[in-house]
Design a protein around this nucleic acid. Structure first.
Length: 268
DNA sequence: TACCAGGTAAAAA
DNA sequence: TTTTTACATGGT
C-alpha cells in the first residue's frame, strides 16, 4: 500500500461524492471508504489517510489516473484566494473546503457519459450507463472497465436500445465510436478549437463540449452555461443574470466555480 | 398519473 | 431565422 501525499486542504469524501449521489457508478465504485477503478485490466484502490491517500497499486500508470480522479491539478489555493471577497462564493469555499472536482479518466468515457446524461436526470443516466458498462465492459475487481471504443463500434444500435437508450442516443454513441474523431489530439488544442471539433460530431452539442472541457480536459475556464443545474444555482444565488455572462465574473476560475456552485445541489 | 430531469437534431413556423 | 417537437428512463 503506497502513500500519495496531497497538499491540504483535501477532502476525499467531497471529491468522491459524485460517484455516490446519483447511484453507484459501476466504473468508479465508492465502497466502504475505498474508491475502486479499473486501470488497464488491473484494479486500483484509493483510500483516505491523513495528509494524502493510500493507493494500491501505485505506479507510472495508476499515478496519473489517481491525479485525474482526485482533481489534483486544480489550483485550490489560488481559487480560494480569488473568491475570498465574493460574499456568495466565500461561504461555499468554507462549506466545501478541500473539494477537488474529479476528472473523468478517459475521453471516450467522458463523451459517452455525457450523451447518456443529455436531457434526463442523472439518476436515470446513471442507471442506463451502468447497464451499458455491464453489457459491454469488463469486471475488474469491485469496479468495471468502461466499454472500449472498439467494442461499442462493433455494437449495434439495437443492442443499446435494449439497455434503455433512445434510438437517437444509441445512434450518437455508436456513431461516435465509429467516427474518425481522434480523442487523443484534444489535449493540445485551445478550448474553442476543442469545442468546434466536438460540436461537429453528431450528438455532441455545446453542453457536452463544455463538460468535456471541464471534466475531461480540466480546463480552468470551462463554463457549461447551458447546464440546467448550473443555471438553477446561478439564478438562485445571483438572481436573474445571464448565466453565460456570469461566468466571466469568476474568471480565471470558471471551472472550479461551476463545480463549487453545483456542489450545493450534490452535497447536503 | 403526470411531470420533470445537468440536451440535441430536425421539423415547423 | 427562430420556435417547437420527439426522444426513453427513473424519481417523485
Amino acid at each position: 500500500m503506497a502513500f500519495l501525499p496531497i497538499p491540504e486542504p483535501f477532502d476525499l469524501d467531497l471529491t468522491t461524492a459524485r460517484f455516490r449521489v446519483f447511484g453507484v457508478d459501476r466504473a468508479t465504485v465508492w465502497r466502504d471508504g475505498v474508491l475502486h477503478r479499473a486501470a488497464d485490466g488491473r484494479e486500483v484502490r484509493i483510500a483516505a489517510r491523513p495528509g494524502g491517500v493510500d493507493v494500491e497499486p501505485l505506479d507510472d500508470l495508476t499515478g496519473p489516473l489517481v491525479r485525474r480522479l482526485l482533481g489534483l491539478d486544480f489550483d485550490l489555493d489560488a481559487f480560494y484566494a480569488r473568491v475570498d471577497p465574493d460574499p456568495t462564493l466565500a461561504p461555499l469555499v468554507l462549506r466545501f473546503t478541500g473539494f477537488r472536482p474529479a476528472l473523468v479518466p478517459d475521453a471516450f468515457e467522458a463523451l459517452v457519459t455525457s450523451i447518456t446524461a443529455q436531457q434526463v436526470s442523472l439518476f436515470s443516466a446513471t442507471a442506463v450507463r451502468n447497464r451499458l458498462i455491464e453489457r459491454f465492459g469488463e469486471p475488474v475487481g469491485a469496479a468495471w472497465a468502461f466499454p472500449a471504443r472498439e467494442r461499442l463500434a462493433a455494437a449495434s444500435e439495437d443492442e443499446l436500445v435494449e439497455l434503455g437508450f433512445s434510438g437517437r442516443k444509441a445512434e450518437y454513441v455508436v456513431g461516435l465510436a465509429r467516427s474518425d474523431l481522434d480523442l487523443d489530439e484534444f489535449e493540445a488544442l485551445a478550448d474553442e478549437e476543442v469545442k468546434a471539433r466536438l460540436v461537429a460530431q453528431r450528438g455532441l452539442g455545446e453542453w457536452t463540449a463544455d463538460w468535456f472541457l471541464a471534466r475531461y480536459l480540466g480546463r480552468p475556464h470551462a463554463w457549461p452555461a447551458g447546464d440546467l443545474a448550473l443555471r438553477k444555482v446561478v439564478a438562485a444565488l445571483y438572481g436573474d443574470t445571464d448565466v453565460r455572462a456570469a461566468g466571466s465574473r469568476f474568471h480565471p476560475f470558471e471551472n472550479l466555480t461551476a463545480h463549487y456552485l453545483l456542489a450545493t445541489l450534490l452535497i447536503p
